[in-house]
């Protein structure tokens, strides 16, 4: 019983404990400016993880986000000269469209989301390869700075990407907690049958959730391409694992219905602290994927709601 009461508090307790441990091992970790830089670095991951939160919150998963972000880095690079700053709008819309298609295939065509999103991801990969001619593309530096220089500037010591990330998180949080859509999302995640019985258009809610996931993934891709000044069909590889880890470690279980955006923010910070700790403890970067894979398994085991397992893919 105490376990049940404590469970919602696990994520932030974990975060605080990790920060304290890492801080004791290396007091330099507590420097404010260092911390701000760390947080700014983790923003693209945060944005991707926020999108993924919507997919997991309704009990699904979106395995296409990495490929969508890859495709967007290529699109941004290719169309920057033509569309200028509106390329941001274009890619976010395209990301949302891909998400909506995933949602449609999942709900209306009865394809489990891990297969539908995997397949849609490969369609995105196809487009990325086509647009990029299978090469790494580079942005024109002047164009980039003219249109997207604001993304990575610095005002009074506060990195702009941090502000962007927090604004997007705030927007997502509003959507989740203060709108009818957010309530519907909660209802669908908590129990689809009950949601249907209460007259909620479950399919529409789910399609919209996948659409949001795609839009956030696209925005993360946009930030990648501006930050790294280019596009490539593999640029964002490696972020799928981290995004899933961030959502689950934050306390949104695979079974959906509880948790949410705040949890994902905490989860992303946990990922950030673990990565920072690995640097301080001089753990080789090659071990990162293995470590996060294990963290993922532990996180799922601790957060999953076993009473709801019947409704999840075996």
């Amino acid at each position: 019983m105490t376990h049940e009461i404590l469970r919602p508090h696990f994520p932030w307790i974990t975060l605080v404990a990790l920060i304290v441990i890492v801080g004791i091992a290396n007091p330099a970790f507590f420097s404010v400016s260092g911390f701000v830089i760390l947080m700014a670095d983790v923003i693209p991951l945060l944005i991707m993880a926020i999108g993924m939160t919507f997919a997991i919150y309704i009990g699904g998963i979106d395995l296409s986000i990495q490929q969508l972000a890859n495709m967007v880095t290529v699109m941004t690079t290719v169309y920057l000269a033509q569309f200028g700053i509106s390329v941001a709008l274009l890619v976010v819309l395209v990301g949302g469209l891909f998400g909506i298609i995933s949602g449609f295939v999942t709900t209306r065509l009865y394809v489990p989301s891990f297969v539908s999103t995997l397949a849609i991801g490969f369609i995105a990969l196809s487009i990325a390869k086509w647009l990029s001619n299978q090469r790494a593309l580079f942005m024109d530096a002047t164009l980039r700075d003219a249109h997207f220089g604001w993304m990575f500037g610095n005002t009074m010591g506060v990195p702009h990407e941090l502000v962007i990330g927090l604004l997007l998180a705030f927007f997502a949080w509003l959507l989740q907690t203060r709108t009818p859509f957010g309530r519907a999302l909660k209802a669908v995640g908590s129990g689809e049958l009950a949601a249907v019985a209460s007259g909620i258009d479950v399919d529409r809610v789910k399609i919209f959730a996948f659409g949001l996931s795609g839009m956030f993934a696209a925005f993360a891709g946009l930030m990648f391409s501006v930050k790294l000044s280019g596009g490539d069909a593999q640029l964002a590889n490696g972020f799928l694992l981290l995004a899933i880890v961030a959502v689950l470690v934050g306390g949104t279980p695979l079974t959906g219905g509880v948790g949410g955006i705040i949890n994902t923010v905490i989860g992303t910070l946990i990922v950030m602290v673990i990565r920072a700790a690995m640097v301080y403890l001089e753990i080789d970067a090659t071990q990162q994927q293995m470590i996060f894979g294990i963290v993922l398994i532990v996180a799922i085991a601790l957060t999953i709601d076993r009473s709801k397992l019947r409704s999840v893919v075996k």
Binding site: Q289, G293, I297, I300, I304, L309, V313
Partner: peptide, 18 residues
């Protein structure tokens, strides 16, 4: 641990690659 197999195996796959 009664975790859905797609998630366990996805995570194990990451561990393997890692």
């Amino acid at each position: 641990f009664r975790i859905p197999s797609f998630m366990v195996s996805l995570a194990m796959g990451f561990v393997g690659t890692g």
